[in-house]
Design a protein around this nucleic acid. Structure first.
Lengths: 147, 147, 147, 147
DNA sequence: GTGGTCTAGACCACG
DNA sequence: GTGGTCTAGACCACC
């Protein structure tokens, strides 16, 4: 239930929220039909402007990950898990290439990189930085699946 | 001598310039005492406003990488090569860990990751992402060391 | 509420602003979490260009004294009051030593120096020199703490 | 014979030179009629552009501290020692007031200030910062008094 | 509304 | 010639 939105981060708050949701779906913590916290609830929990949460939900709806049922709330779409996972995967691969390109540009060689990669792979859950968006609790006790 | 500043990138132009210089120092293409292109010269070469270049130079001076001699130009500080390289390295390693942690969390296994890494390492200059800062030629034939 | 920015001073306007903010934090007139006047507001009050104020704010953010919440404004960081005060103190003490060393070297004796010091201490706000940064009112009635 | 011109300093090189000379006169290390090093010699010693030294000498001549004898060199004027000393004194007192005003503004009280002052007065020759301009050797073995 | 970025152009101090 | 500073005004993203 800990908010790991970083208001000091340079990445926009609404993007952080979008990442969290996308990631939760890709990793299965949010399944098809699951209800998300209401805009108001989440905004209070994150101590963030409701508009910010609303924007994230709207964006995610446009992306096809969420849908809203009037008066009911916002829900995870069906049949988008694999698509979402692949998108995440693509994003991650892109970033990986990016980082490695920079590593080479700054003088690190293949051996250096591989060493770091191995080390990182062997760690269970690495405590690096505030960005990896996997901890925000998006489940709600009283939340039910939409039919 | 190719400018690979991307005006349309989401990362600010002055940040791109800062990265270029930082990487040039880290990789040894720019050594201690070397003079950088003048603000005006570089701004013309990159087709950006002189203020933008000046801002990058000033930031780098604050970071301790450069110093300016009034009326003379901007120079690379001495005794910061290894510090700079290590800082670059640390930043990159941090991001690498970050990305790989996300990769694992989103379901990729070690094999997947290694495959991407290998592929990325074998490419010369990968066209992924918005900021692979290695091509900007910061040397000048007629430029000499300060002092 | 008096602006004592001196446009004609030899010290840059943005540096004067930085000093004001720094001193305000060091002396407690600006506390952690306090919001600063908006760039536009302060620029109007001081009759300087908004960019000038923005530059000061950005510098102070780089120094770690301020942080900005996008679309919300600029705020004083937490846990930097004592660090800031000590830094100010150290800087001042350094300059004090410097000046007194010169005073001695140029033939003034302890009595001379003490006399000047006493006189200076007894004055409320001394009109000496170009940068006595203590009068700019950085508080706003309707401003509230962040978070 | 050590140059303590600081090319990394923010204060202009020519101003540093002017301060050195002025200080040397005020403290008696340069007496009336003494010859100064030639522009060329000093510029080489300080590893500085000759124009810079020339400008300093010119300024000091305008101030009335130096005079040049065509083909002979630059000399210290007579009867300006006390005037010069007083000017130095005034400058130092001004800076003292300035620093103490800032000290008060940043929350230091009289006791704090006095403590620092006492400590500083008790030290023989304080090694603070690069600015106190008293070490530049402006004498020359082969230099003679002008008649 | 907030700040961030960039442009264009001016003036100044320095060397 | 060099960089430093400031202005005026524009556009953008964020909240």
């Amino acid at each position: 239930m800990i908010s790991n939105i970083d208001i000091h981060s340079s990445v926009a708050v609404y993007v952080q929220i979008e990442n969290h949701v996308q990631f939760a779906i890709a990793s299965g913590r949010l399944g098809p039909g699951d209800q998300l916290p209401s805009v108001r609830e989440l905004s209070e929990r994150l101590e963030v402007n409701p508009n910010t949460v609303a924007k994230a939900y709207r964006d995610l709806e446009v992306m096809g990950l969420l849908y809203t049922r009037r008066g009911m709330g916002v829900f995870v779409n069906k049949g988008i898990e694999t698509k979402c996972r692949e998108e995440c995967r693509k994003r991650i691969i892109g970033r990986l290439h990016e980082v490695i390109a920079e590593a080479k540009a700054s003088g690190m060689d293949a051996e250096d990189v591989n060493e770091v990669v191995e080390k990182s792979l062997s760690i269970d859950s690495s405590p690096y930085g505030p960005t990896p968006p996997q901890l925000l609790n998006l489940a709600k006790a009283t939340r039910k699946k939409s039919r």
